[in-house]
Amino acid sequence: MCNRTVALKEFALSGSEQNPDLTDKDIRLLVSRLNPGSDSPLRLFLDRGVDFLHAATATELAAKMNALTGSALIDPAQLDSVIHDRDVQVASGLGKDPQLAAIRAARRFATDKIMRVAPPHRLTDPEHGPLLAVRLSVLTRKSLGGLQTDLRSRVLDDSGVPVPGMYAAGEAAGFGGGGIHGHRALEGTFLGGCLFSGRAAGRDAAASV
């Protein structure tokens, strides 16, 4: 959980459709994100998303969280105590909370200070409110492999022998034992692996006819 100031500064949406300013290289739209009244995709998620809960107090927020899940998982008094302890450390500047230490360390870098990390403040400060909680859902977004393949994109059985006539390409394939980009694989690099494995599968399938 956090508050609205932290969310607007530190939350980011993945996907080109959620970032029209970057996708369309629209500088004016990009700059408009700095406007507190901007109707950006992130603000729409915060204001209209069913998984985003807002409240002025920890007690009210806990009640909304429990209502959303249909079970009393959150103890209002305990949540209030955690927030209070965190705010005391922020106010004193002497806290040893690892998250606060990470925030202070990140803000030593100009780019993070300007664009990515909100300045330390009390979560219950009305000027930065309301409090915000987000319901998280665990899901598998990318397989990054699954079917073991050789460098000809042939699917291998448990003993490592190619299954006759069976190929795999794209993210379902093992890319010959590992992604062609290794640890440097990012959103924009998966297409290369898909093209590579698809081409290998097509060539081998054509050669076997």
Rank of each mutant, 00 (worst) to 15 (best):
R116D: 10
A172E: 04
E10N: 09
G192Y: 03
P20E: 11
S40Y: 08
D39Q: 12
P76G: 02
H183F: 11
G15T: 00
K113F: 14
D47A: 10
R199L: 05
P120M: 09
A205I: 06
S40E: 12
I27R: 12
G178E: 07
V90C: 05
L73E: 13
K64S: 00
R28Q: 13
H181E: 07
A101S: 12
V50K: 13
Q78E: 15
T5A: 12
S159H: 12
G179P: 02
D51W: 08
S32P: 05
G198D: 06
L100V: 05
A173Q: 01
L29R: 14
T124S: 01
P76C: 07
R104P: 01
F45V: 12
V88L: 12
G70V: 14
I180V: 15
A205H: 01
I180Y: 09
H54E: 13
L131G: 03
V209A: 04
D47H: 02
G93D: 00
L13Q: 01
N19T: 01
A172I: 14
D125N: 08
A77E: 11
G160M: 04
Q89G: 07
Q78R: 15
A58R: 07
P119I: 13
R86N: 09
L136N: 00
A106N: 11
A56H: 12
S153Q: 08
A168C: 04
H54L: 10
V163F: 03
L186K: 13
P76S: 05
R184Y: 11
K113A: 14
D47P: 01
H181N: 10
A110E: 13
L100E: 07
P119Y: 14
R184L: 12
P20A: 08
L13M: 09
K64R: 15
R43D: 03
I74D: 03
E17P: 05
H128R: 09
I27G: 02
G178R: 10
V209K: 04
P98M: 14
D158H: 10
T149D: 13
V31F: 01
A173Y: 02
D75E: 10
A201P: 00
S81G: 04
